[in-house]
């Protein structure tokens, strides 16, 4: 699965991509277990065919898209994004997909739609982690409609020029590069347009630690660790120096205006 070089501003960082072996073996995807190595070990059971994504809620044109329809909806682009995990590590990943806005425009949100809720696959038969009580399943994430419409918000089907490996959220996932990684929901099955701010899974589980916005922000620490710096995966081994974390993960020029006037210490 390949895509043309994206012309969206900020979509092509010149930083060195993380080795594919690391990006596909060091994952948080609790539906397959809480250890970083679990998804690569167990995600082969995930059934990605057939796959449909349901669009519902406050839109003029609700309905079901099967995967082929989604793949053909808009031309594929390659986007090289920094990925910053809330745990303090980061990667650089070349994703393949198109702006979520393309899909949103197609389904025509009503004026009352203010937020978008993303619901992901939760099948205890193929996802062993769903049998554990680590989180409430299915895993749910949310964005404000203007965040979801931002051209950097990516609906992704592939990475490194290939179809997404199961452990990275096949067959279709969200990538929101200026937010902590957990906002980028994997293996999407439902996209719902709503009026009220949705409660995301981590926000429900530990609201004092994980906010709805979860924008990458070096000045707002996680209650149990600093967010001022990060460790780049696959860079110079054990003794690599950590690098400074950038405001909005380095996408401030593109997305800063979405948060003008907001107190980001309160709305973390």
């Amino acid at each position: 699965l390949t895509g043309a070089v994206s012309r969206v501003s900020g979509a092509n960082t010149m930083e060195k991509a993380t080795p594919y072996a690391d990006a596909s073996s060091y994952n948080n995807f609790y539906e397959f277990g809480t250890d970083k190595a679990d998804p690569a070990k167990y995600a082969h059971t995930l059934q990605t065919k057939p796959w449909t994504v349901e669009i519902e809620g406050l839109v003029k044109k609700p309905g079901r898209f099967d995967l082929d329809a989604l793949l053909k909806l808009s031309p594929m682009e390659e986007r090289i994004y920094r990925l910053r995990c809330v745990e303090g590590w980061s990667m650089v990943v070349p994703w393949v997909g198109y702006s979520l806005a393309e899909l949103i425009k197609r389904v025509e949100p009503l004026g009352s739609a203010k937020y978008v809720e993303f619901i992901t696959q939760a099948d205890p038969k193929t996802m062993p982690g769903v049998r554990s009580r680590v989180l409430d399943w299915p895993y749910v994430e949310g964005l404000r409609l203007d965040e979801a419409m931002h051209p950097l918000t990516l609906l992704s089907f592939g990475m490194y020029g290939e179809v997404l490996p199961n452990q990275n959220g096949a067959p279709v996932r969200l990538v929101v590069p200026w937010k902590y990684g957990f906002k980028s929901a994997k293996s999407l099955v439902k996209i719902r347009f709503v009026e009220k701010q949705p409660v995301n899974s981590w926000g429900r589980s530990a609201p004092q630690e994980y906010g709805f916005y979860s924008n990458v922000n070096p000045n707002v620490d996680h209650p149990r660790w600093s967010q001022a710096s990060e460790r780049r995966i696959g860079e110079d081994g054990l003794f690599a120096k950590k690098r400074k974390t950038l405001m909005f993960n380095g996408y401030e020029a593109q997305v800063g205006q979405l948060y003008a006037g907001m107190d980001l210490k309160k709305l973390y």
Binding site: A21, D22, S25, Y26, K36, A37, W89, R231, I233, G234, G237, L238, A240
Partner: peptide
């Protein structure tokens, strides 16, 4: 493991 790069993607965390 550290000398042979056998501690996974995030060796510092592993150690």
């Amino acid at each position: 493991g550290a000398a042979n790069d056998a501690l996974g993607a995030n060796p510092a965390e592993y150690v």
